[in-house]
Structure formats: C-alpha cells, structure tokens
Computed example of a mutant assay.
Amino acid sequence: MVKSLRTIQAPIVEELQEFEQRFRDSMRSPVPLLDRITFYIVRRKGKQVRPMFIFLTAKLCKNITDATYTAASLVELLHTASLVHDDVVDDANERRGFFSINALWKNKAAVLVGDFLLTRGLALALKKKQYQLLQIVSNAFEAITEGELLQLEKARRLDIDEEVYYEVIRKKTASLIASACAAGAASTTTDEEIVEKMRLFGETIGMAFQIRDDLFDFGASDVGKPLGIDIKEKKMTLPLIYALQQTDKQNRKRIIRKIKRYSEEPATIREVIEFVRQSGGLEYAHKVMLQFRDDAFEILHSFPTSPARESLEDLVNFVVEREK
C-alpha cells in the first residue's frame, strides 16, 4: 500500500512549513502585476515532491542546514520558471487543473515572469554564496534544455529508439530530480562521493517518474493530462517505442505514418493506444520502471536505517505507484 504524502513528510514536516514561507518570500516583488502573478503561482503549487527529496536527502546524509532551504528554493524557482516557459512554448491553457499564466496574462507576461523567477533563483544562490548548489542546479537546467531540443529534433522523423528515449528523459526529467537530491546532500556534507551517490539516486528515480508519466497517456483520462496527449504531440514514449519494435516493418511504417499525418484525430489516438496495449508496450514499460525503482533502492540501502531513509523509500514507491 502506498503511503500518503502527509505520512511520508513526517520527518521533515516542520522544515517543509518553514520552506513554504521562505519560498513565498523569495517570490515577492514591489511590482503589483508581478506580485499578483507569483501569488497565483504559489496558490497552485503541486505536491512539492522535489523539496521533499531535498530535505529528506539532507537529513539522510547529515542534518538540515540553512543551505538546504536555499537549495529547495533555488530548485523550485528554476523549476517553476521552466513550467511557465513550457506552457508558452506548448501553447497550453491549463496546468494541474488551473489556468496557465499565459492563458490569464498572455504570453508576454508569462515569458517575463519566467525570466523573473529564473533570475530570482540565481540571485538567491549568489546572495547566500552557495556556488556549488548553483553549479548543480545550473547543470540540470542545461541538460533539460538539451533534452527538449533533442526530443524536438527526433520528433520530426519519429526515429527515437530506446537508447535515445532514455537519453531524452535522463536530460528532460531525471536531471532535475537528480539535482534536487545532489543539492540536498551538498547542503549538508562536503563528501563528493555522497553527493554523487545521491545525484545518481535522484536520476534513477527521475527515470522511473517519467516512465510512470508516460504510462498515464495510455490509461485512465483523469490523471492530470488528456488521454493520448503524447500521441497528439508526436512524442515517442517507451510503451510506443516497444510496441513498434514488436510489429512487422509494414505495420510499423503504417503506424508512424498515421502519427505523423493524423496525430490530432481521435480515431488515430484510439488506434495507437489500442496498438500499444495489444503489443505489450504497457507491461514492458512498467517492468523497466520497476527496475529503475530497484536500482534506486540499492543506492538508498547503502545508507544506515533512519526515519529519513524510510520516508525516502516510501517517496520512491509513491513516485512509481501514484495514480496521477
């Protein structure tokens, strides 16, 4: 049984409350429009999984410090900036059931707000003289940009195989969770081996997280994004890649042609979803996801038993078993 986030947060509940206040303060601005938009962003924040990884990792390695709060704010500010910019690029009107910033205040304001959050995060790290944290998180966002562009390049021909897929999600998704865990460790220890170990732990979880997200596209329609949205956007995810590998050359060409030309048509989306389901794509992706989970547990279990380690185990299970 998957434990609730409230239960998982138990060892760091006070720290998360303190972080929430600090994060709100870090977004304040004397410009009324900007302050209004950032207040809207704070109100619709998600599950706060990344701050949880940061604080639990710090507690696992040693003790939570002031630098841990800086790490959490830095990661969340830059992550939020990337989401605001993503909604502009994708022309998305909603995120997590709320109107996006660009839907309410138009693209120009959204881009500028994203820029503000990005620079505010960098300024916070510099003010606190947390140069290592800044390096860790900057590396992650460089990787995210590379991953997005790699996916965009490959989407034109739909020629992504498994290895390219793993490279894309390692950069696009896993790098951010990896940076959160590395920053959490770096905020409390100077041991580079431990910091790297936690970076690998976060990267492994990030891989599992993205595969779980990909599986949602072929399941129920109430999981935070419309059913078949990846197909509509011509994104080659692991279930589809595997399904295409299992079929004959003629059928593979036919499916790819349909996705290229008719991906927005409901009939095409239904056909591709059924094709993936019948080809064992969902089962294969689920198996790979669980392998990444097990690899993460292997890293985690190299640390002594503690409440923080137990909560990290539960958080890993939450990531791979969540329903939305």
Rank of each mutant, 00 (worst) to 15 (best):
Q250G: 07
K234F: 06
D217A: 01
L240W: 04
A220L: 13
Y262W: 10
F218N: 08
L240F: 09
L215V: 12
K260E: 14
F218D: 14
Y262R: 11
R212Q: 13
F201N: 04
L244K: 08
R254E: 15
G219D: 13
Y242S: 06
D248Y: 04
T247H: 13
K258A: 15
I205T: 09
I259Q: 02
D214M: 07
G224F: 13
K249C: 07
D248K: 10
P226M: 02
Q245W: 01
D217T: 02
A220W: 06
E233P: 01
D213R: 09
F209C: 04
G202K: 07
D214K: 07
A208L: 04
T237R: 02
R252E: 15
G224Q: 12
G219T: 14
G206A: 09
T247V: 14
G228L: 09
F209Q: 07
I259T: 03
R212L: 04
K232R: 15
G202Y: 08
T237A: 00
D222C: 13
D248H: 12
E233H: 09
K253Y: 10
M207E: 09
I211F: 00
Q246F: 05
I229L: 11
D248R: 07
R257E: 15
Q250D: 13
K235M: 06
L227E: 02
F209S: 04
R252H: 06
L238T: 05
T247E: 12
D217H: 01
K260D: 04
L215H: 09
R261W: 07
P239W: 00
N251G: 00
D248E: 15
